[in-house]
Simulated scan of single mutants.
Amino acid sequence: MAGLCSARLQGEAAAFTSALRTLVNNPQFSDVTFVVGREQQKVFAHRCVLACRCQAFRGMFSQGPVGSEDPPGSIPPQGPFILGNVQPEVFLAVIEFLYTNSVTLNSHILCVKFIKDTLSVEQVCEALQAAVTYGQADLQQHCLAFIEGCTAAVVRTQGFHELSDAVLVQVLRSDRLAVDELDLVQAVREWAHVSSAVLERPVPEVAALPVRELRLPLLAPSELATLESHNQRDLLIPVESIAAAWRAHALRKGSGVPSRLCRPRRGTRPRDHHRHLDPHAK
């Protein structure tokens, strides 16, 4: 008997998102109601969607009614839940994002506290981009700290690949990224190829600013040689930057290379030559 074969069917993401958007504040099949703001506006939602997308809602729905003998989470309350201090437009924006993973924000509906409380690996880059767009400095720092805590996972997300070059530069300037430099170079390469396709511009052009923040002298000679080989395919990194990294190895110090590019990050794997790059090393 011939071996079984299988194939993965991938539908259109846009159609899926559009279908879910029709459920936002739709009373049909809704099983939970919120009464929001001073206007006491009713908002209809679906517990299963909110619970799987947001830990705060999961906790809310897991609390059984007062005096109930049922185990927590067995019969989530129907509501209505009163949210008197929340603006309806803010809450609806949050609901739309949870259902569709996208929402059009403006300065009136950017709910900073809610975003902070519900950050996830998949969403943090989108939150950071929005924070920069709307000048929310505190939220920017909060998102960056989150990214620093789980960098290796964040750089694999779609949100990372969709960052603007200016925001990516801010991320790459951090000394506390929990990822090795070689992995970070690969993440930036993937980001550059995505941006190149979306913007219809050459890879070296879209990546001009971020690649300046890559700390190439931290790589071992064998890693630099491999990087140089890969670079011939897409010209992601300027030849001068690679040459400067080789020079740092040859001179056994970071001569001619900005000191920030010789400084290991929190997640940098140690290499033998690092002690020659760090002027403070014993």
Rank of each mutant, 00 (worst) to 15 (best):
F16E: 10
H276E: 09
Q170Y: 02
A56S: 15
Q140C: 15
D278G: 06
L9I: 14
L23H: 14
H46E: 05
P202M: 05
L168R: 00
A153K: 07
L144K: 10
H276L: 09
E213H: 11
I109N: 08
K113H: 13
F57P: 06
T33Q: 15
A7L: 14
P202D: 03
T17F: 13
H142Q: 09
A153D: 08
V167K: 07
D278L: 12
D138K: 04
S222H: 10
A45I: 07
Q129A: 04
L235V: 09
C52L: 15
R271Y: 06
G79H: 12
V206N: 01
N25Q: 04
L110N: 06
M60A: 08
P258W: 03
S68D: 12
G73N: 03
E12S: 15
P204L: 05
R275L: 09
H274L: 15
C111G: 04
L172Q: 00
S174C: 06
Q186T: 12
A250V: 13
L219H: 07
E126Q: 14
T133G: 01
E69R: 13
A93N: 03
G73L: 02
D138P: 00
L110E: 03
N85Y: 11
T151D: 00
G254Y: 06
L236W: 01
A137T: 09
S6R: 01
T157P: 01
V121M: 00
R8S: 12
G73D: 04
E39D: 14
D272A: 15
D272N: 13
N26K: 10
E181P: 03
V24D: 02
E148S: 04
N26A: 08
G3F: 14
L139I: 00
A131P: 00
E162T: 03
Q41M: 13
K113D: 15
E228I: 02
A145W: 07
E89P: 02
N25Y: 08
V239E: 15
A281F: 13
A208R: 15
E181I: 07
D117V: 00
L20F: 13
C54E: 03
E223N: 03
H280F: 10
A131G: 02
Q141E: 10
L218T: 05
V185K: 00
H46P: 03
R8M: 03
S241F: 14
H161G: 11
G67E: 07
K253E: 09
G254E: 12
R21F: 12
V94S: 07
S241A: 15
L105F: 10
G11M: 11
E69Y: 07
R156L: 15
S30F: 05
N106E: 00
G37F: 11
P279V: 01
R266T: 13
S68Y: 11
R263V: 11
A7Q: 10
E240S: 08
L219N: 08
I82F: 10
A178K: 06
F29I: 09
H193Q: 08
L184H: 02
S6C: 05
Q63P: 01
R275M: 07
T268P: 01
L110F: 14
P72F: 09
Q232F: 09
V24Q: 03
I242D: 02
I237P: 05
D70L: 14
V188P: 01
R156Q: 14
C52W: 11
F16D: 08
P72A: 13
I242P: 01
P210F: 06
R265C: 09
A153P: 00
L224M: 11
G256I: 04
